[in-house]
Design a protein around this nucleic acid. Structure first.
Lengths: 248, 248
DNA sequence: CGACCTTTTGATTGGCGTCAAAATCTGTGG
DNA sequence: CCACAGATTTTGACGCCAATCAAAAGGTCG
């Protein structure tokens, strides 16, 4: 576990340039107002905790760069369930229980840069600026969709199908949210996820994930290591996974 | 599959009286305005389809009475995943894909009464009445929480644990959202769900669900049939399930 | 009362977990 | 720039939880 370094910067210019940031399409007047509530920019090393389940925490964040995960530790057996992979442009930390505690933990996968907003100061803002609330509704709707498809993959698909599904979902989310890592190679993305992470996302052991991924590789559907994921036969893999672009 | 009977009624008085309806806490001024968009009250028999995945549909609904489910059919193997049990006061049908199609199907479990609102007419309303948007945000937040805990039950719990979890979740949601079915017996609720439904919710076969439920019964933790569910030892069952009231 | 739905039971199978250990990769410090 | 420790991937053997198949028993509703 690493120490969290916080560095306040007045310049956060890239934040609202990102096309899929939650500040997209917010009218300038509201946007400027919202900017006032930007409190800090944090740069975190890989595998460091952003916030923890069941605690209270004053900030919500947008990811400017890097990968992270939202997860929960199961109380009766200590296992981890990854709820969501977090990519640049995503908003995290807004979800609390009825008692005001965080619903889950968040942890960086790679070195990341976050932009923090004060939770308490933003709430009253929503009533005054409906565009913000509507934008949050849209994002929430995508979150639910993502979670439901994730549930289907975990509940009603075989190991092979569910892993294929997660790989495809991540592939297209990255393509959409992160500017080309491998310009020349449109079938590939940077892929810093371990096989254990994948297992914790779909309810499998890292060992079985390994067996399945090796099978997908030997079937020439993908290539995959901790650096890079390539989708070799998109349509075939999509059919196997029960994945469609409609889902995204 | 049953024919959908639609009957328009001007009186929908109980709708906003329910304490957990999505219209709760909305100022009178907005509320009256919102009421204008109430289009119809539908009464449906048990096991009838409310709307179907991937189609377009003009209405969103609140449940006035009865139980329903949101589900999706997995494209590559035809299996069903239940995403959510729907109880009186819940709002359904607002979730669409980027292409404007419904994200999932909905079906009644028991005979039900729904209150319909026009989707297209409500959207512009949100910008004008932030309280509505904020209220929807709150509901969306609960939906996500529910879905995430459901994912954990399916992904990282054993059959016994996940079934115990679903029973407890339903038990307390019913207690909160439906007025006492069995006044004298506070440990019991009406329970119209089949074991096959339970299996489709947590990714198990009806046969294995049956074995587990019989085990829970013989352990004297619950009694359960298609009419009635009783929680006999709440704390013991909760510990087994990894369930806590914080989750709700 | 009779057809269908739901629950129950038993036998068998198989997918994925567990355990153990080797091989490889990665990052850090000397 | 190399060495080394820890993390991650890979392999194999074995076991178990839950699926599958089959069929009987019990419930429910028209």
């Amino acid at each position: 576990m690493h120490t969290i370094k916080t560095q306040i910067k007045t310049d956060c210019a890239n934040c609202e340039k990102r096309s899929n940031s939650f500040l997209k399409d917010i009218p300038k007047s509201s946007l400027y107002l919202f900017q006032n509530y930007r409190k800090a920019q944090k740069s975190l090393p890989a595998r460091s905790i952003i916030f923890e389940e069941a605690k209270s925490h004053d900030f919500i964040y947008t990811i400017l760069s890097g990968w992270a995960i939202l997860y929960k530790t199961v109380s009766n057996n200590g296992k981890r369930q990854i709820l969501r992979f977090v990519l640049p442009g995503d908003l995290i930390g807004y979800q609390t229980t009825a008692h005001g505690h965080l619903a889950h933990s968040a942890c960086t996968i790679t070195q990341s840069v976050l932009c923090a907003f004060s939770r308490t100061e933003i709430k009253p803002l929503l009533s005054k600026h409906p565009e913000l609330a509507v934008r949050l509704l849209e994002m929430g709707s995508k979150d639910i969709s993502l979670c439901q498809n994730h549930l289907i993959a975990t509940g009603r698909k075989t190991a092979k199908e569910s892993i294929a599904y997660v790989l495809l979902e991540l592939f297209f989310r990255v393509k959409k949210q992160i500017p080309n890592d491998y310009e020349s190679d449109t079938n590939s993305i940077m892929f810093p996820i371990t096989q254990e992470d994948l297992g914790d996302a779909v309810g499998l052991t890292n060992i079985h994930v390994n067996r399945v991924i090796k099978e997908l590789i030997s079937n020439k559907l993908i290539t995959c290591n901790k650096r890079k994921l390539s989708i070799l036969k998109e349509s075939e893999l999509s059919e196997l996974a029960g994945f469609s672009h409609e889902m995204m």
